[in-house]
Design a protein around this nucleic acid. Structure first.
Lengths: 217, 217
DNA sequence: CGGAATCCTCTTCGATACTG
DNA sequence: CAGTATCGAAGAGGATTCCG
């Protein structure tokens, strides 16, 4: 069982020996916002086969990039979680995302919707620090069944799964609607008027949030 | 001939659809410092098969990431060169290189020596802007048959192939020796004393240069 | 000699079915 | 829910040949 390698004394080649394997960076993308279960990963990575995911998870764990752990009771489910080594890939992934945004399909119609992991990365990748000057807010984003917490402060943004802080505003919507808002193909006012998005809190927060990281390619 | 794709509305997935294919990022790495010929690429990418390189080059050209062009006479050879879209991958690659450096093999003995492309990326990836404050110099680096021009100014570094500017110092050595110096496994004074490296110009420039971007993992 | 195309083998991927 | 097992299809790697 010898691993395939570029066998070159080059830092980039070494990195690619590990995370260049198909699916690996996307698995890590899914984990960037927090731990996920096996089936969550399957859902967020449409097209991956179950044996391949299992194999990749094992490799990544052996390399110290992810960790397999049990959630404390009553949950008790086994989840996968990034180590600090895995988290350290975030800036690379954001840079790659910025570059790749110009190759995004024209619409979601032909391809799979982004997962929460993908959207979280997009929110960070397209974040404009200048626009965030003076903004200090936390938003809670409900997309279908999932919840994201977005915090902006001091010109920095962070995105995590779940709800654990008092948000300044809560948005309830679907992934489809959110993508259209995020990419600017749909107007926030219209979404609210048509009941496709519900805001709890100051109605202005939505536009403020969207302006922070609109994907202006 | 349908391309394999992650088919997800995600900027990272879109990027990986293109440069996630095996060898692609390394091909681009080779071109980051300037145009190269087909056989130069073969040499810099040990292990790539000739058909695979040809196929990748065609894909990358169609995607607008590289360009195939003729050098003006008397050279007249066809070379591959990055477009601005391809150049835009540099920051991602530097970030990946920084991350991957901790997985570098302990020594070059078991693996292939870095190519000039790999070394150029390393010089940029491990560059410390703070250390470069007040330094304004150009070094010409002769590694085996190849020549690199390294310019430092205003806390920024740039690396290009060939000689087209008056350098402050010229270093003649082999790739093997340079790698050992760069990784700190070999002392510059010792290299010079043993005639493994020859300096034209101020002898202090070598240490200054090495301090700029020593791979301190 | 540079720049590929062809052929063949081996590994990896992907889809589905199956199990603790 | 969290994975294994199986198997055909696609891709990678190596050698060789072709062409200007």
């Amino acid at each position: 069982m010898k691993k395939r390698s570029y066998n070159q004394f080059c830092a980039l080649a070494s990195a690619l020996d590990i995370i260049g394997e198909r699916w690996n960076l996307l698995i890590i993308r899914e984990l960037l916002t927090g731990p996920r279960r096996y089936t969550d990963l399957i859902d967020g990575l449409p097209g991956i086969s179950t044996n391949l995911l299992a194999e990749r998870l094992k490799e990544l764990e052996e390399l110290g990039i992810i960790r397999r752990c049990m959630l404390p009771p009553p949950a008790g489910s086994t989840v996968y979680q990034l180590t600090s080594l895995g988290q350290a890939l975030e800036t690379s992934m954001i840079e790659l995302g910025k570059w790749g945004s110009r190759f995004l399909p024209a619409s979601c119609d032909e391809v799979n919707l982004p997962s929460v992991g993908a959207i979280s990365l997009a929110i960070k990748a397209f974040f404009h620090p200048q626009t965030a000057q003076g903004i200090n807010e936390t938003y809670e984003l409900h997309l279908d069944q999932e919840v994201l917490q977005v915090n902006v402060s001091d010109g920095e943004i962070s995105v995590h799964q779940g709800q654990y802080r008092n948000p300044d505003a809560i948005f309830y919507t679907t992934m489809q609607v959110f993508v259209d808002l995020f990419t600017g193909q749909f107007d926030p006012d219209e979404a609210v008027a048509n009941d496709l998005l519900r805001i709890e809190g100051d109605p202005d927060t939505l536009k403020r949030f969207l302006r922070l990281s609109k994907a202006t390619v």
